[in-house]
């Protein structure tokens, strides 16, 4: 059931990820695969092309046949890897097909810390003793923290970690005033009432936490969109692209899947092909500008 576009050219579609099995993107895809299979009427298989933080997956994709059989699940990681090293193929060698979700980035602190609001964290940072954390050294999360520092003109130190779990511990034991991460990473602590969200670094509030304001609502002009979408090889046939464009809105409206992705704090973020190309180009340029400005790359 692909609809007006006719039959999808392949019966099996591989969705590859740079995440190894059990990693964030891998779990996301494996949860999505059965629902997407149902909606698209093809068998969706998740394939792990781990290695080189996406470099390997990009290389495989760029060389693959544009027949609708192999796609890459995008996250900002593949843009960062393209810019930070010189992989054989970069994000520019792939065709952005559609976007599916935004993964809201939230700022959070320990519930038993001295901070109840973002403003208090910022006030504390004005004393010169602020300590903020971001999970990875060169990542969207780091970028948000650096930009927050610039926009609010405070001077906290920003420590980076080797993943969300590491940093979460440092927030829980008050080494850090505040950390940033995806909702999914802190959900267990959130449910147990051990961490408090201070703000959403996105365009809109999160439906399950309607009281938490976005940064913009708190007077800070800062919003990022951690995207989760699909990219394919260049010259992917229009019929294939059209099939994805038709399928994703239906996937997002599917009640069974809605229950899962809302629980994980994902925001539906369908973007069609034409606009997604522009989105990806802008995202790449902005990231490159940030990395150059901060001297990470030349």
């Amino acid at each position: 059931m692909v609809g007006a576009q006719g039959k999808y050219p392949r019966s099996v579609v591989m969705l590859s990820t740079h995440s190894s099995p059990g990693g964030g993107s891998d779990v996301f895809l494996r949860e999505m695969a059965p629902h997407l299979s149902r909606v698209m009427g093809v068998k969706i298989v998740v394939d792990n092309l781990a290695g080189g933080s996406g470099a390997k997956a990009m290389a495989v994709l760029a060389k693959s046949k544009p027949d609708g059989g192999l796609f890459y699940a995008t996250t900002p990681t593949f843009i960062y890897t393209s810019l930070l090293s010189r992989p054989a193929a970069t994000y520019r060698d792939l065709e952005p097909i559609v976007n599916i979700f935004y993964d809201p980035e939230v700022l959070y602190t320990a519930t038993n810390s001295n901070f109840k609001t973002l403003d208090q964290v910022l006030q504390h940072a004005r004393t010169g003793k602020g300590r903020w954390g971001a999970a990875n050294p060169a990542s969207l999360e780091r970028q948000v923290m650096e930009q927050l520092r610039q926009k609010t003109k405070v001077a906290p130190v920003i420590a980076t970690f080797e993943g969300g779990g590491d940093m979460l511990i440092s927030v829980l034991n008050h080494t850090l005033d505040m950390g940033i991460g995806e909702l999914q990473e802190i959900r267990a602590q959130l449910d147990a009432g051990r961490v408090r969200i201070l703000g959403v670094a996105g365009d809109a509030r999160i439906s399950q936490y309607p009281d938490v304001k976005t940064l913009k609502e708190q007077g800070i002009d800062l919003a990022v969109r951690k995207f989760r979408g699909i990219a394919g090889p260049k010259a992917t046939p229009p019929a294939v692209i059209a099939a994805w464009e038709a399928a994703v809105p239906r996937l997002l409206a599917d009640p069974a899947y809605q229950k899962i992705y809302l629980k994980n704090g994902l925001l539906p973020g369908f973007i069609g092909h034409a606009e997604y190309q522009k989105f990806m180009g802008d995202f790449g340029r902005q990231t490159e500008a940030f990395l150059k400005q901060s001297g990470v790359i030349r």
């Binding site: 050294p137 780091r142 650096e146 400005q293 901060s294 001297g295 990470v296 790359i297 030349r298």
Partner: peptide
């Protein structure tokens, strides 16, 4: 010595 300087350093 050739590792580039970084403002994030």
């Amino acid at each position: 010595a050739q590792i580039p300087e970084s403002q994030l350093a």
